[in-house]
């Protein structure tokens, strides 16, 4: 996807070049109001002093970042040590999101490949089928997943009726349930970009590889995968990033026993804590982390484009 711009090389005429600047204006206005302004507001808030019971006092303070990285004990007057609490919460979220991404990739890639190799008329139907569940709101789908997974739910009734198990398999309020929820929520974000990439792939290349005695595995690894890599990476980012900040699946399916990044931030604004600067600081740290991942991706992409000539 991201590599697409460099591969074409059709010259843009001067007429279109000039028009381009002001055509971008609506996009810029929207982006600055809806993305840039809130992020800047968060950045500013993260450096302010917290007001008791929510709100901020307009005085510069590093307290929010200090709280994130340093532990001063229950009463705040022990010597400072490294605070592992929030790092552990971030690590748990990254781990969960990473696992959900791999799971989506493992199921999503073959699915996308399958769809892209159907006759053209069938493809539309398959893509349509993939999107049908997503006409329903994410919250409702997550609550429905609860009904399916619970001890007295239909899945367990089925298992027990078939004699597969004697008692109910306990799935609700476990990490497994969270994984199922994340996977189910974001699977199409994996399938659709990969499908788009595979659909553009020129299958005569695979035939050429076969003619040159490459087996199917080698063809997949050395011919197909490099060609559809941008789609795969785009899919991974589209699943990983929202999973990282999600709180519906951890709350409703995982039992909210352990904070995830999303619920930790939510608690700072909506819970008793009422610590807006800390919520803002945690958001900024999360944002920085995601940015770093994206920059690494962009640079790796640029390098591989250069190598490809």
């Amino acid at each position: 996807m991201a590599g697409g711009a460099t591969s074409g090389g059709n010259a843009v005429t001067d007429t279109y070049k000039e028009a381009r600047n002001w055509l971008l204006l609506p996009a810029w206005v929207t982006l600055s109001f809806l993305v840039l302004a809130p992020v800047l507001l968060m950045l500013v808030y993260s450096f302010l002093t917290k007001e008791f019971r929510g709100g901020v006092i307009w005085e510069f303070s590093l307290a929010a970042y200090d709280q994130f990285f340093f532990d001063r004990g229950l009463f705040g007057d022990d010597p400072a040590q490294i605070e592992w609490t929030y790092i552990a919460i971030f690590w748990r979220s990254i781990w969960q999101a990473g696992a959900a991404t791999l799971l989506s990739l493992a199921i999503g890639f073959p699915t996308a490949y399958f769809i892209a190799t159907r006759p053209e008329k069938q493809r539309v139907i398959w893509v349509f089928l993939i999107t049908i569940p997503y006409w329903v709101n994410l919250l409702i789908r997550t609550v429905s997943m609860r009904f399916l997974l619970r001890d007295e739910g239909p899945l367990n009734s089925f298992f027990m009726a078939t004699g597969l198990v004697d008692g109910p398999v306990h799935m609700i309020n476990t990490n497994f349930a969270v994984q199922v929820g994340l996977f189910y929520s974001y699977l199409p974000f994996m399938v659709l970009p990969i499908y788009a990439a595979v659909e553009r792939y020129n299958f005569t290349l695979s035939e050429a590889a076969a003619d040159l005695y490459a087996n199917k595995w080698i063809t997949l690894r050395h011919i197909v995968l490099p060609a559809v890599k941008p789609g795969v990476i785009a899919g991974c980012i589209l699943v990983f990033v929202p999973s990282l900040g999600s709180f519906l699946a951890p709350d409703l399916l995982g039992g909210a026993k352990n904070f995830m990044i999303g619920s930790l931030i939510e608690e700072q604004f909506k819970g008793n804590a009422g610590n807006w600067p800390f919520g803002a600081a945690a958001s900024m740290i999360l944002l920085t982390m995601v940015l770093i991942i994206l920059v690494i991706y962009a640079r790796a992409q640029a390098r591989s484009d250069k190598e490809a000539g």
Partner: peptide, 17 residues
């Protein structure tokens, strides 16, 4: 009060970390 609430918040975060 603010001081005790800060400890309560810490206890709560410890509980849910």
């Amino acid at each position: 009060d603010a001081e005790t609430q800060a400890v309560y918040d810490k206890i709560w975060t410890n509980l849910k970390k």
